[in-house]
Design a protein around this nucleic acid. Structure first.
Length: 501
RNA sequence: GGCCCCGUCGUCUAGCCAGGUCUAGGACACCAGGUUUUCAUCCUGGUAACACGGGUUCGAAUCCCGUCGGGGUCACCA
């Protein structure tokens, strides 16, 4: 950008709308976005929908939605209504190019399709992998225009469309997954034949599962299938039995069935697509930060950064060559750290938005004051936006349905001749007398009792905690009692005493 | 299988291009201890890697070759 002769940078993200946005695609988009934004260039979007059977508008919509959720913005392309060109709308242009190639003797018809002639050795430079040369003998003629379909339309293949579109859109830097590395000689040859300028190519390493396999949406189907087989339970009632049988028989990998099975079995499917991470309660800035780090880093031992920093510092020269494995533990750690640093009102708003979008309903039914109590109590304890509902389950359950963890009861209540129960009996009238109720006031009374009896606070707080939550784990005792309120606190202590005391 | 690419702690990685300052640094995970009324947080410390074998060199994680391992690709999918 300091070179006045350098042309402005134009990058693009060009997904095929055949499914939702995958983390690998998201990372490519992020890199492309950052490269352009950091250099005052343009970042464009384009939909490669030349596969007529698999492309859907629904996928296109979801991809755009997920890109927005991640925080990406793009420049509109003139000539397309929403600024996002679709290759299916540009058939005339591809046909024109094909005619040109045929008349120049560079392509020929065969079996109704049109092939491009290869033969020369091809050398190209990749910003990540360096100079790559492929001998002409390893390069076969390839189809650039498919045979006419049922509707009589001849669609280009990806190879032709990508080359023509990148040229027409003025794309200067092509950042894409390394699965395209061995396609690149074809693209280089086409570009040269057409007299276009070759872009800078930067291929990125792949993102793999912890076991080394490629991260794919099929992993979700696999997980659901094996869980269904192990549990041997009845299938989810809402799924058509025929489809379910086909799914279990590996005849299809339909995501909706996988999700239905997971919901039915209360199982979490592995997150693969951006929407999965969103649903699981990850923050977009954390997802961006983490997946960016899979294959690139700014050096100086810096790991945590925002989009602004990314745009300023991202550079092709620091992209790694080796594949990386997706580590959910690290993602979780980043998410937890970020949640804990969020201003409380922002955390509350995010939690609200997430529960409204994904449930559970119980959390949505709370009034603002209670919702704030839950949010505050769980902010320091949450790894994801989905955690408060899970961790705070004791609060949402009916007093009469609370179950007690046997070990917890034994350890904090029954042990030493029911020492814990005695504390509860002594505490009950003291707590009942508190008016107005507050968790802090209750805590003060408990501290006073602990002192009077020469007990550690743990000997008083833990019995109360177990009595009102059923387990030894909950937020601070004052927060826990604030959440429950006076009536439910007393009711639960009485019930606990009635059951064991 | 052919062709292409890759190979530093369990994982993500710094270092490699411009060989010595690397008894290889950071992060996550893990382990131990501390703070705390539980949990979480937080603090301190620890375990842990240059795939292997040859070269080149006074000296190699860094350069070269081979072996092994991993990935990609070989579609009228992208």
């Amino acid at each position: 950008m300091t070179n006045p002769d350098a042309q402005p940078v134009v990058t693009r993200f060009a997904p095929s709308p055949t499914g939702r946005l995958h983390v690998g695609g998201a990372r490519t988009a992020l890199y492309s976005w950052a490269y352009a934004r950091g250099r005052g260039g343009k970042f464009l979007l384009r939909l490669e929908d030349t596969d007529r059977k698999r492309s859907t508008e629904e996928s296109a919509r979801s991809i755009v939605e997920d890109l927005r959720w991640l925080g990406l913005d793009w420049d509109g392309v003139e000539g397309s209504p929403d600024g996002i060109p679709r290759q299916s709308q540009r058939l005339d242009r591809y046909h024109e190019i094909v005619r040109q190639l045929i008349s120049g003797g560079l392509a020929y018809e065969s079996d109704g399709a049109v092939r491009f002639r290869m033969g020369q050795d091809i050398t190209f430079d990749d910003a990540v992998y360096g100079t790559i040369t492929t001998p002409g003998k390893d390069l076969e003629d390839f189809v650039i225009l498919k045979a006419r379909d049922e509707a009589g339309l001849a669609y280009p293949t990806f190879h032709l469309a990508v080359v023509v579109d990148d040229a027409d859109m003025g794309v200067t830097h092509v950042i894409r997954g390394q699965e395209h590395l061995s396609n690149t000689p074809k693209h280089a040859a086409l570009i040269d034949a057409l007299g276009f300028k070759r872009p800078v190519w930067a291929h990125t390493p792949s993102i793999m599962n912890p076991d080394g396999s490629k991260m794919s949406k099929r992993d979700k189907a696999k997980a659901a299938r094996s869980a269904a087989k192990i549990s041997k339970a009845e299938g989810p009632p809402e799924v058509n039995q025929t489809r379910l049988a086909a799914f279990l028989n590996k005849d299809n990998d339909d995501a909706d069935i996988a999700q239905a099975i997971a919901d039915h079995l209360h199982l979490a499917l592995p997150e693969i697509e951006v929407a999965d991470f969103r649903r699981s309660g990850y923050l977009p800035q954390v997802v961006c930060n983490y997946i960016t780090l899979l294959g690139w880093n700014p050096g100086e031992n810096i790991e945590r950064f925002d989009m602004k920093f990314l745009a300023e510092r991202f550079d092709l020269s620091r992209i790694n060559k080796a594949n990386s494995k997706f580590d959910r533990d690290k993602l979780k750690a980043f998410n937890a750290q970020t949640i804990q640093q969020l201003p409380p009102d922002e955390w509350r708003a995010l939690l609200k938005a997430h529960t409204q979008a994904f449930g559970p309903g119980s959390l949505n039914e709370l009034d603002d004051a209670r919702f704030a109590l839950v949010a505050n109590a769980y902010q320091p304890r949450s790894t994801t936006l989905a955690d408060p509902a899970q961790l705070g389950a004791f609060f949402f359950i009916d007093d009469s349905k609370l179950t007690y963890d046997a070990k917890a009861v034994d350890k904090t209540l029954a042990k030493n001749d029911g020492e814990g129960y005695s504390v509860l009996r002594e505490l009950l009238p003291v707590l009942a007398a508190i008016d107005p109720w507050s968790g802090r006031a209750a805590e003060d009374k408990m501290k006073a009792l602990a002192e009077a009896r020469s007990l550690g606070m743990g000997k008083v707080a833990q019995p109360v905690r177990v009595a009102v939550t059923g387990s030894t784990v909950s937020p601070s005792i004052h927060e826990t009692l604030d959440l429950l309120g006076k009536d439910r606190t007393l009711a639960r202590i009485r019930r606990c005493l009635g059951q064991g005391g």
